[in-house]
Design a protein around this nucleic acid. Structure first.
Lengths: 146, 146
DNA sequence: TATACTAATTATAACAATTATAAAGTAAGA
DNA sequence: TCTTACTTTATAATTGTTATAATTAGTATA
């Protein structure tokens, strides 16, 4: 699973003429196998064992590159720093207001909203984003108790 | 229309025990009558004529207060700074990728998504956000032309 | 395989949005 | 009016992100 995604991602790099460096390889690998929708800093700290000299700028630069070629999505929630998500099939996120955990879920039918929005506003629609906020099962007891 | 919203908003302040200061009054008034979903800095600059000594911190503090009592929503898109939106009835935003314009539109049926998400993930759902991205009618000619 | 060219990385500085702090000022109830 | 707790102000600090310039390293080509 991870290997397949990684191989696909590296192919995408090759076919778009983006050089495959050890840092890029490692960042992609981490993004793919990570389930935590990491921040740039998460990635930086996760890889500083393997690349003691890597600069934060490298992380940001490459995340920008990955975004440009469509491998990665940037998630900007209310909190200070962006999170990054390796793009597989379309999914949405549900976020715990209490502990911040992000869980993926899938919902097929949001194309209709795009059509309506396009019709009402005259925009040419490209894409959309949606997030749901709530309390995760782990946090419900704490939040509910008086 | 503006007056009504403003009166309601001031009532909300009173009933939640938040003091009504001239700065708060002006920030709310600006948020309500402004159609541009302003940034904190937009607000600050819009009011520096009326309040030459107002501090940016005041703007941020009060936007936080307004958010806490539900008068205002913070919109965090990809770009650097947050935008703020006075909460009236539920609406969504469609954003032009080319010029950044934000247009409101209304769509009733997203409760179903909340239910499904709740069912699949076990979360207790509070709210959601959605934005649509595309090209606005004004920008379509520029983007389309070869 | 060696060479050369171009792009990527690093280290650092700069920047910009936001938040923290402490002192001075003020809204609103007694 | 007086008092007190909350707000504002001014400023400094913090933090996430980007720009710069020099060094390093992929990759195509011979």
């Amino acid at each position: 699973m991870t290997e397949m995604h990684l191989r696909d991602a590296l192919d995408t790099l090759k076919s778009t003429g983006v050089r495959i460096t050890p840092q890029r390889h490692a960042i992609l690998e981490f993004l793919i196998q990570s389930m935590i929708h990491p921040t740039a800093d998460d990635i930086y700290r996760a890889l500083e064992g393997k690349f003691p000299n890597m600069s934060v700028a490298t992380v940001y630069n490459n995340l920008r590159v990955f975004k440009e070629i469509g491998l990665v999505k940037e998630l900007t929630y209310g909190d200070s720093s962006s999170r990054f998500d390796f793009v597989t099939n379309d999914h949405y996120h549900i976020i715990c207001d209490s502990c911040g955990k992000i869980v993926d879920f899938h919902y097929p039918g949001l194309d209709e909203v795009e059509h309506l929005a396009s019709h009402v506003t005259g925009f040419q629609v490209n894409t959309h984003r949606m997030e749901i906020y709530g309390t995760c099962p782990t946090c419900i007891p704490q939040v509910t108790k008086v």
